[in-house]
Simulated assay, not measured.
Amino acid sequence: MGSRIAYLLAWMTLAAGLYGCGGGGVPYQPRAEWRDQAEQACLKSGVVRASSYVQAAPRLKGPSACGLQAPLKVSGATGGRVALTPTATIGCPMTAALDRWVQNSVQPAAYRQFGTQVVEVKQIASYSCRGRNGSRRGRLSEHSFGNALDIAGFRLANGHEITVVKGWWRGTPRERAFLQEAFAGACREFYTVLGPGSDRFHYNHIHVDLLVKNASRGRHYCRPQPGRGGVPVAEAPSGDLTTTASIKPIPFVGPGED
């Protein structure tokens, strides 16, 4: 009898721990309706289409609220002209936003600073069911929904590589200006942008995501703010940048809750 009671108590303790963390050390969090709505709206719009560099993957359902209804394996942007390495697992809205950012901000910055184009974007984190900054408490990271990317560097057509960890603070003036311009463009495109200087976790990459509650009254959560804590952001050319991208912003539906 004693062993049975001990076994029952151990099982109850384990079950309570799994419930409190969402399973496997992941914070528990209900899934907001806007996530699936945004994913479906993006897919139905047709702005992101299957190709050799955007491929559909089986549904992801992790512990807690983690997962994607229709995950995409993305290995390229802007018509496949820019490689994304390694292949990222993200949702449709992030895929569309990545394309717009590369087209409207990253490439113009590369041409201004180096006279050539970016041919590769290097990322170090896409879908991953975990808490923010790896914590087992608090809120789930947007990575848990395929709604975030961590950008670590870029490669130009001439072979020149620019990394966030080296280029942001200690790079050449052109490398620093390029990263700051790309960062400022990300702040216009994504709803959350965190880079070196924002906290101790983002010293080697630029985190971008589409958490709707961080898009309020036309303003996005961006740290550090462009032009502060680093080299000044170069002024954009007069007039709006045009794009030949085949995608347009996808409006998110539902309350700004995560």
Results as ranks from 00 to 15, higher is better:
80 G>K: 05
167 G>Y: 01
105 S>M: 08
149 L>S: 03
137 R>V: 12
79 G>N: 09
132 R>L: 15
121 V>F: 05
98 L>S: 03
156 L>F: 01
159 G>L: 07
144 S>W: 00
162 I>L: 12
154 F>Y: 12
141 S>L: 00
126 S>Y: 00
111 Y>C: 11
119 V>G: 05
106 V>I: 13
94 M>V: 09
144 S>H: 10
112 R>P: 12
168 W>N: 02
140 L>R: 13
106 V>A: 05
90 I>S: 00
95 T>K: 08
86 P>K: 09
122 K>G: 11
102 V>K: 02
137 R>T: 15
108 P>T: 09
119 V>M: 10
107 Q>R: 04
139 R>M: 13
166 K>E: 14
136 R>C: 10
104 N>A: 13
145 F>D: 07
91 G>K: 05
80 G>F: 10
99 D>K: 00
109 A>V: 01
163 T>R: 01
103 Q>F: 10
90 I>E: 00
77 A>S: 13
85 T>A: 12
160 H>D: 02
116 T>D: 08
136 R>S: 14
100 R>T: 12
110 A>L: 02
145 F>K: 02
138 G>S: 08
155 R>F: 01
145 F>Y: 14
159 G>S: 01
123 Q>V: 14
148 A>W: 00
118 V>T: 11
140 L>I: 12
103 Q>T: 12
146 G>H: 01
125 A>W: 06
117 Q>K: 12
78 T>M: 12
138 G>L: 05
98 L>Y: 00
128 S>D: 15
96 A>K: 01
83 A>D: 06
162 I>D: 11
165 V>W: 10
161 E>S: 14
112 R>A: 15
151 I>V: 12
101 W>H: 09
122 K>H: 13
153 G>M: 01
88 A>N: 02
77 A>D: 06
92 C>L: 10
134 G>H: 06
127 Y>N: 01
152 A>T: 13
83 A>W: 02
135 S>I: 08
112 R>D: 15
104 N>I: 12
119 V>D: 09
103 Q>E: 13
118 V>Q: 11
168 W>I: 08
145 F>R: 03
103 Q>K: 13
105 S>L: 03
159 G>M: 07
114 F>E: 08
153 G>I: 07
104 N>E: 14
136 R>E: 09
109 A>S: 09
118 V>P: 08
148 A>M: 02
151 I>C: 05
168 W>K: 05
142 E>I: 03
84 L>Y: 02
108 P>V: 11
119 V>I: 13
87 T>A: 15
151 I>F: 03
162 I>F: 04
161 E>Y: 03
149 L>N: 01
150 D>C: 00
162 I>R: 03
121 V>A: 10
102 V>M: 11
152 A>C: 10
166 K>P: 05
117 Q>N: 11
148 A>C: 03
119 V>A: 06
159 G>P: 04
118 V>I: 15
160 H>R: 12
130 R>C: 10
137 R>L: 14
125 A>L: 14
120 E>K: 14
90 I>H: 00
164 V>I: 14
104 N>L: 15
151 I>P: 07
80 G>Y: 07
97 A>L: 08
126 S>K: 02
107 Q>K: 04
116 T>Y: 07
129 C>Q: 07
121 V>H: 05
119 V>S: 04
85 T>I: 07
161 E>N: 10
149 L>F: 11
117 Q>C: 08
145 F>S: 06
94 M>S: 02
159 G>H: 07
111 Y>M: 13
93 P>W: 06
134 G>F: 10
83 A>R: 11
113 Q>S: 09
95 T>V: 08
132 R>T: 15
137 R>Y: 14
97 A>W: 01
